[in-house]
Write a protein that binds this DNA or RNA. Structure first.
Lengths: 152, 152
DNA sequence: CTTGAAAAGAACTGCCT
DNA sequence: AGGCAGTTCTTTTCAAG
């Protein structure tokens, strides 16, 4: 773990919004030279804080308009059933994220579907037939607001 | 909306894993020339499918080891209270995502904290005091597996 | 769709304060 | 730590097949 100053945080904030900005352009905005800014970025990468640059894909532009979060309680909780469930859940193409969680539910799934009818198909034919699945609770996402910058 | 062929999907899959790969390097991998590959990327950008490139920050490297998803049921549901709740929830630094959802709960919050003690502080002093908050349910994330590529 | 080339710019390297 | 100057690479745009 490494200590970040205000300049590092400004760099992370800028790159979080748009990772395509060059080190030179960002340096000008922060009053730093291009190499100085570049060195800080490299330091953040080497420290593992900057873990990579990923694409932001708009699901709506691909025709996927519905996002649903499922809370799932397993009926049978053995060591084997956990792995079985995870493997089967990960194999469903519409399932974007599989989280093993502690609390009211055992697993949380993020599901992307084209529309509500498509979601119902995924729910009935794929999710409800997962090995060991018990109680299932669904939350359809209406709107989402996310904090762009780094934490803290 | 636009139709994607297998090559487009391969490009999205490669860029989803690592958005830093150059158009030339990807073209070689796919058997395409550099300009041809570059044109496809630009087409995906113009279509809005490729919405941007964002940073992947490792929260653990910054000392944030705990992720908790909160399901929140509002006690009072007027038009005003929804906006009040959203504004107040977004203002909490530890809250990364605020989702308005349909289902058992009204809102879902993604909360990042340094540890469980830090999370309890956020929960008691910030979340439980949000305007109109009713029932609160928490799920601590143990592990997470996400599908890298594009949907469908 | 391809190749090739040229111009712009970004990334990286030493050396200096 | 930061800045300056220079080299190497990619991106981006052209012309032409």
């Amino acid at each position: 773990m490494i200590a970040l100053d205000d300049t590092d945080r400004a760099i992370l904030r800028a790159l979080s919004a748009d990772a395509t900005v060059s080190a030179g352009a960002m340096g000008r905005q922060l009053g730093l030279s291009q190499p100085a800014c570049w060195r800080r970025i490299k330091r953040l990468q080497d420290a593992g804080i900057l873990a990579g640059r990923r694409l932001l894909i708009d699901p709506a532009a691909l025709g996927f308009g519905v996002t649903v979060f499922l809370g799932i309680k397993l009926a049978t909780k053995g060591r084997v059933s956990l792995e079985d469930f995870e493997r089967a859940a990960t194999a469903i193409p519409e399932v974007q994220v599989v989280q093993h969680v502690l609390g009211l539910f055992d697993y949380r799934l993020k599901v992307r579907a084209r529309d509500i009818a498509d979601f119902e198909r995924v729910l009935r034919r794929r999710v409800m037939t997962l090995p060991g699945v018990g109680q299932v609770e669904a939350n359809v996402v209406l709107s989402e607001e996310r904090r762009p910058g780094p934490l803290g």
